[in-house]
Nucleic acid binder design. Structure first.
Length: 641
DNA sequence: TTAGGGTTAG
């Protein structure tokens, strides 16, 4: 695997670039392709005029550099406030039309009412639709609601997380002598999945098949596939896909896309790509959703070159990127700290006639917060308001977390207290961000008070909240309090996940209590938990610190055997361990392996490797491996595109 | 002819 195929010498040669990134804590060792990714993207999307038949004619194609450097005024950066009807006006006009129909005599056929209801549910106003059906249609003499109306009502219940009510409507449907359709059951199956009751959904699905009550169609299969994917059973979803292929109901774009997305989220991007190729072989056309999932998956793993290729392929197939595609690209840029490029994506999308939405701008804001540029984040927030997009609770949470990260707890607290006045009730994430901020400043008492307040106002802490508490207490030296919390959770039936254990393992390692860390680590499997890459990294770090290189190396080998691939942190940790023990040969071999896997030396490891190469270059024992680096690098450098 | 499945941010 030589995505960033380079050697150690390349690290040195590219030090000015890498250094810059090292300081920001993001992956260094950028390949030339990596650096040019957003440029390629913009240039291509701007200069390609044949891709989006529905989009307005694109402006003359500027050069990539012009896209990045051209500063447009703020009013051009964001869509202007809409003069046409907003979403609420759309709802109002649908309601007006519904009410007008109720006044007509003779009354219109039920299908017309269903159509109006469908418009309302498509806008997401499920409670309104349900109320219209139950409180208006049912009360009017002369209207006979039909199967379609029932299905809309059942779907509305499901979308409101009231699947049980959906099932009682199914009862009423039977009583009225209607026969439910595949749609009816599928809606209920989906309702179960939405309420995290996938096992029941699968049960119902199986029952329908065995009783031959309903012949499942592709939508029903697709819904079950989605349920399996959402619950981490992507492999079972793939099995179902294979079963479909054997039967008469063939998988469609949605089924494939669902699995492709899930594989990407499960870090199995290569398998996702294989399915994508398979679609092509079977003549099933990918759509914008399929491409969005793949581009997102590839970007998440730094596979820019392939992401660009897929993006080009999408444009070549005549599929126009939508707001989600551009948001994924903004996200990819911001996660790499490339804010100018992220702003560039925003410009491109506007020029292409796609308006950024609140998610796009929140993503951009989050990028600025990650970089610590709160002034820029606030500028985006203000722009959002000016342009008629209403910031949501996520926008507020992003800013609060940003302030906390910058240790500006007063500003964070101000915004936090301001939220109810703006119509937002702080949620678990809001409290989590505030708690993290307080712990970071060592204000454990205030954090405790806020945690109590959270429970008083009825926000249920989730495992992440407990993780923040546990970590905060540990990092502030309140180990015994942390342990009490840990045991309290156990007593209250709150499951400890691997993160909780990892926090304690890390604490014990740093507290020189390696034996306690080992006990916790070794007991994980008895609790049915599997260490993740962070858990391994913490243990490996602890072992290296104690000079137990042999045990660290054993664990390093074992993690991969157990199916947990080492990441950049693992390599850097163990390489530093070896260098610390003057085992330069092993360190260089591991460095080579690290680079081959697309990771690179971080700010603390990098100078140590440079030191080995510059001071031990003549060491006969090392010459062979150093030569190998040099040789590889000459290839790596030719890879430029 | 009106109902059901897949993609984005904290």
């Amino acid at each position: 695997m030589s995505r960033n195929g380079n050697g150690v010498a390349a690290i040195i040669r590219r030090a000015p670039i890498a250094d810059n990134w090292l300081l920001k804590g993001t992956p260094p060792l950028l390949s030339p392709t990596h650096l040019s990714f957003p440029f390629v993207l913009f240039h291509y999307s701007l200069s390609n005029t044949t891709t989006s038949p529905s989009s307005p004619p694109p402006p003359p194609p500027p050069t990539a550099a012009a896209v990045i450097t051209n500063q447009v005024s703020e009013s051009e950066t964001l869509p202007r406030k809409r003069c046409n009807l907003g979403p609420n006006d759309d709802l109002q006009s649908a309601l007006n039309s519904f009410n007008r129909m109720l006044q007509m005599r003779p009354l219109p056929h039920i299908s017309h009412f269903n159509k109006a209801l469908g418009t309302i549910t498509k806008m997401g106003h499920y409670a309104t639709a349900l109320s219209l059906i139950l409180n208006k249609l049912q009360q009017v003499q002369g209207i006979l609601v039909d199967l379609y109306t029932f299905n809309i009502a059942i779907n509305s219940c499901c979308r409101l997380n009231q699947v049980h009510f959906g099932f009682s409507l199914l009862g009423s449907l039977f009583k009225r002598g209607y026969t439910p359709a595949a749609t009816t059951f599928n809606t209920l199956i989906n309702g179960l999945i939405l309420e995290d009751k996938t096992p029941q959904a699968v049960e119902l699905f199986k029952k329908l098949i065995t009783t031959r009550e309903i012949e499942p169609d592709v939508v029903m299969y697709g819904t079950i596939v989605n349920g399996l994917c959402r619950t981490g059973n992507t492999i079972r979803a793939v099995s179902l896909l294979r079963i479909m292929e054997e039967g008469s109901c063939k998988p469609d774009t949605v089924v494939y896309s669902t699995i492709i997305d899930s594989l990407c989220k499960d870090r199995m991007v290569d398998d996702a790509l294989k399915l994508f190729t398979e679609m092509d072989e079977k003549g099933i056309f990918p759509d914008v959703v399929t491409y969005n999932s793949l581009i997102h998956g590839l970007c998440n793993f730094g596979r820019w070159k392939e992401a660009t290729k897929i993006f080009r392929e999408m444009l070549d197939s005549g599929i126009a990127p939508n707001v989600r595609t551009y948001t994924v690209l903004v996200d990819a840029c911001t996660k790499e700290g490339k804010m100018k490029e992220a702003e560039g994506v925003l410009e491109v999308m506007i020029q292409r006639g796609v308006d950024p939405d609140v998610v796009t701008l929140n993503t951009l804001m989050d990028g600025y917060c990650l970089q610590g540029h709160m002034d820029e984040a606030i500028r985006v927030f203000s722009n959002m308001v000016e342009k008629g997009l209403r910031p949501n609770i996520v926008s507020h949470n992003i800013l609060i977390a940003g302030y906390c990260k910058k240790m500006k707890i007063d500003e964070a607290m101000h915004l936090f207290r301001e939220m109810p006045r703006r119509g937002f009730k702080p949620n678990t994430q809001t409290f989590g961000a505030m708690l993290q901020g307080l712990f970071q400043l060592g204000r454990c008492g205030a954090a405790q008070k806020l945690f109590n307040e959270m429970q008083i106002v009825g926000i249920i802490p989730d495992s992440q909240t407990y993780g923040i508490l546990l970590d905060g207490l540990c990092k502030n030296g309140h180990i015994s309090k942390a342990l009490s919390l840990f045991h309290m959770m156990e007593r209250n039936g709150l499951d400890h996940d691997v993160v909780m254990y990892s926090i304690l393992i890390d604490t014990f390692c740093k507290d020189k209590k390696l034996d306690s860390a080992r006990v916790l680590f070794n007991n994980l499997s008895s609790k049915g938990l599997h260490p993740n890459v962070k858990t391994y990294n913490m243990m490996i770090h602890g072992l290296c610190e104690e000079g137990l290189l042999h045990e660290a190396k054993e664990l390093f080998v074992k993690m991969e055997q157990s199916g947990c691939l080492p990441d950049g942190v693992t390599y850097n940790t163990i390489i530093r361990g070896f260098i610390g023990q003057h085992k330069c040969y092993e360190a260089l071999i591991l460095t080579e392996e690290m680079v081959e896997r697309g990771f690179s030396a971080d700010a603390s490891t990098f100078p140590l490797i440079v030191d080995i190469l510059s001071t031990k270059g003549q060491d006969p024992a090392l010459q062979e491996v150093i030569k190998k680096f040099m040789h590889k690098d000459s290839h790596g450098m030719q890879e430029k595109e």
